[in-house]
Write a protein that binds this DNA or RNA. Sequence first.
DNA 1: TGCGGCTATTG
DNA 2: CACAATAGCCGCAG
Length: 593
Amino acid sequence: MSDTGVLDALLESGVARGELVALALDPGVGLALATATRSWAVASADPCGAVALVERGIGPRWVLWSNDTAETLARAGVRVARAFDLACAHRILEGTWAADPARVWAAANGLDAGTLPSVAPPDLFSSVGDDDGDGDEPVRRDGHLRPEWAAGAWRASPERLRRWSVLAQHAAAEQIAALGAISGRPAALATARAESAVELLCAEMTVDGLPMDRVVAEGIVAGFVGPRPRDEAAAAEERARRDAAVLRHATPGFDVDLRSSTQVRAMLRRLGIDVVDTRAARLRELEDTHPVVRELLAWRRAERVATTYGYAWLDEHLGADERFRGSWSGSDGAAGRMTASGGLHNMPAEFRPAVVAEPGHVFVRADLGQVEPRVLAAVSHDAALARATLQGDLYAAVASELGVDRATAKVAVLGAMYGQTTGHGADALRRMRRAYPVAMDYLDRAEHAAAAGRDLRTYGGRLVRFGPPPPRDDGTPEPRASVAARGRYGRNAVVQGAAAELFKRWAVTLRARGADLGAQIVLCLHDELLVHTPLEQAAPVASLLDSCLQDAAERWAPGTPTRFVADVSVVARWSDAKDASAPPDRSPASGAP
DNA sequence: TGCGGCTATTG
DNA sequence: CACAATAGCCGCAG
């Protein structure tokens, strides 16, 4: 069968837009497709091109084993609209990070993960035990995948690709049934679809990268640590010079490694400065007591850039095409937030001027306003808190409801969601309980469940595992602090996880609707989107961001009275985005009566 | 060599 | 310095 033959075969068998079509693909071998009733295999030199043909001609929902396939497609420049990602759905259902085919298959088929066969033996034909059949049979008698298939033997031939795609189609059907059966979470299937699209987006961001101006970026590094050293010796010399600037203030005769917090603390003590730790916030209070403190703070800044965000960092991640690349993950962490490696999520703000749109383009940047308390209002169905979301500044609305100032209200709201129980906020927290009992009860229940070791599900249906606390060697009960910490984690997970779900709905809605305008999402930062956009489409994309938010919220929480807001701006570089998310906090917590 | 502690950065 | 994350270096255990 030819590449175009695949499309014809699918059309002949009546596959329509949005229907599940499982895909198995290896760039050097070919591709295979499976519907619920039929399957096809093609030896092809350009399997991604064949996928593109089917995408244009039909536009199915592609069933993928994992985002590995999405990344292969993205590298070939093939963008598909819809997916059902088995690894992604597995993580939602099981609340685990590991989602390799063996585990996904086992869970989808109700097999105990504890009975998973171990890795394939070096000699495929020497395997014994309960294994059976020849190497072309992907499933063992006990129902598990054969380890060598799970490890990649499925790539060996078009016929194996075909069988692999049939298995994917079968696993998807089982997962869809399981998602539909999650009690109290009818939308879990919709969550899995949306999060599968997030996997596509992550693959695209991983491949395409973030536009960054090398000259500007290197200039920022130079501002901290000087010009790029010619060699290792020069780098060591530069390092020694930075160290000396601090050490000249220290007591002579003592050897101090500034990278060791213990030694730094000892050095400060010799100078009459006694601190419990040497964190920057603490040192800043003592800046005027001794010149060494200021020097040390400057050293820390330079050292951070030299080791983490320096020339080596740029060399590793910034490509010749002036795109900065890290690896994106769609649902890392227990609550299911997106993560990125390479420093994309924790890049110091000083580097934002280097994030520059390409010629003829701009960034349309948008961030959600006060998303976590608004999400809390939606998921807990607290009518009073939902009323507060109708105001642009939620904290101001809460403040007038509680009869406190805005800063106090903000601390109280955040404290409620993070599980703060002590401190100045105690009175405001009591007021929170009176004003928003439904939301507070929702948080309390999550906290108690987690503290007791019971699993949680987010609003969208993602399992957050807590498990029974492991038995302790000495048989003593678990420390109270540990139980309390798990409770706070649970309290926050239902809010943070739900906020992640809403944010991701927003992102994939924009990915879908902005494609025709050339809008490319290049950064996701928990509540912020950076969209690389052709100059002439800036205005339409800006308004699209807002309408996508409204639609995403309505699909995520149908009929919710909660209002969600986004601050949208059009900028040439990331740093140009003015931070107008909230009015300044007038009265600091320390000044509260 | 692996891992907990400390520190810094982001939301 | 509550909740989450990535990432680097130190110091210690194995």
